[in-house]
Deep mutational scan, measured.
Amino acid sequence: LTDEELVTMSVRELNQHLRGLSKEEIIQLKQRRRTLKNRGY
């Protein structure tokens, strides 16, 4: 997933992508998404 996709994707879509990932990967992705959102994309 690109940063842009992460930010513009709805939470529902995101959760579908996260299905099948490990807990660590999910946590990393969610942190990255929060960081991007805070940057004001």
Rank of each mutant, 00 (worst) to 15 (best):
V7R: 07
R12F: 09
G40N: 11
E5Q: 14
S10G: 07
T2V: 02
Q16S: 08
K30W: 15
R19G: 07
L1H: 02
I26L: 04
L6T: 00
R33K: 05
E4M: 11
S22I: 04
E4C: 15
E4Y: 14
K23L: 11
E5K: 07
I27D: 12
Q28M: 12
L14E: 01
V11P: 09
N15P: 01
M9R: 02
R32P: 00
L21T: 02
N38G: 08
L6K: 01
Q31P: 00
L18C: 14
H17T: 05
G20V: 05
S22A: 08
R12N: 10
M9D: 02
G20C: 06
R39W: 10
E24Y: 09
E25A: 12
S22F: 03
E13V: 06
R12A: 14
N38M: 08
R34N: 09
R33E: 05
R32S: 01
S22C: 04
K30Q: 09
S22E: 06
I26V: 12
Q31W: 06
V7W: 05
K30M: 15
E5V: 07
R34W: 06
R33A: 07
K37G: 03
S22D: 06
E13P: 00
Q31Y: 07
N15M: 13
L14F: 15
E5Y: 05
E25S: 07
E25I: 12
L14D: 00
I26W: 05
G40K: 12
L18K: 01
R12Q: 13
R34K: 13
R19E: 08
Q31L: 10
L6S: 00
S22T: 11
Y41K: 14
R12C: 11
R32G: 00
R39H: 13
L36N: 03
E4P: 03
E25G: 04
L6G: 00
T2H: 03
Q31K: 13
E25Q: 12
R12E: 14
K23C: 04
R34D: 11
H17N: 05
L18E: 01
T2L: 04
E13S: 04
L1R: 01
L36W: 00
Q28E: 12
H17A: 11
Q31V: 10
R39Q: 15
E25T: 09
L29V: 14
I27R: 12
V11W: 15
D3Q: 01
R32Q: 02
L1F: 08
T8L: 09
V11L: 08
E13G: 02
Y41T: 13
L21N: 02
N38I: 07
K37R: 11
N38D: 14
E25N: 06
G20W: 06
G20Q: 06
H17I: 13
R19D: 06
L14W: 09
Q16K: 14
R39S: 14
E5C: 13
T35F: 14
S10A: 04
R32F: 01
E24W: 10
S10E: 04
I27E: 12
L14T: 00
L14R: 00
L36E: 03
I27A: 11
S10M: 03
D3N: 04
D3Y: 02
D3P: 02
E25C: 08
N15E: 13
R33V: 09
E4W: 15
L21V: 04
R19L: 09
N15K: 13
R32A: 02
I27H: 11
T8S: 14
S10L: 03
E24T: 10
D3M: 03
M9K: 03
H17P: 00
K23R: 12
N15Y: 12
N15I: 13
K37C: 12
N38A: 08
R32C: 02
G20A: 06
I27F: 12
R33I: 14
G20E: 05
R12D: 11
L1I: 10
T2K: 04
T35L: 14
E13R: 05
R39C: 15
E5L: 07
R32K: 05
S22V: 04
R33C: 14
K37T: 05
E13F: 02
E13M: 07
T35K: 14
Y41N: 13
R33D: 02
V11C: 12
E25W: 04
R19V: 12
S10F: 00
Q31A: 13
V7Y: 08
L36T: 03
E25M: 12
G40Y: 14
T8D: 07
V11A: 08
Y41E: 12
V7N: 04
Q16T: 07
N38Y: 08
Q16H: 08
L36Y: 02
L29A: 07
E5A: 07
M9L: 06
Q28P: 01
K23S: 09
D3W: 04
L29W: 04
L36A: 06
L21M: 12
L21R: 10
L1E: 00
S22N: 07
T2C: 01
N38T: 08
K23H: 10
E5G: 02
R34F: 04
I27W: 11
E5W: 05
M9Y: 00
T35N: 15
E25F: 06
V11R: 14
R19A: 09
V7D: 04
T2Q: 03
L1C: 05
Q28V: 12
L1M: 06
L36P: 02
N15V: 12
V11H: 10
N15S: 09
Q31F: 06
T35D: 15
I26K: 14
R19S: 10
L6C: 00
S10T: 13
N15G: 06
K37M: 12
R19N: 08
I27N: 09
H17Q: 05
L18Q: 02
K23M: 10
E4T: 08
E24V: 09
L29F: 04
Q28H: 10
V11S: 08
M9I: 06
R32H: 03
L18M: 14
E13T: 05
E25V: 12
E13D: 07
L29N: 01
L14S: 00
R39G: 14
R33N: 02
Y41M: 14
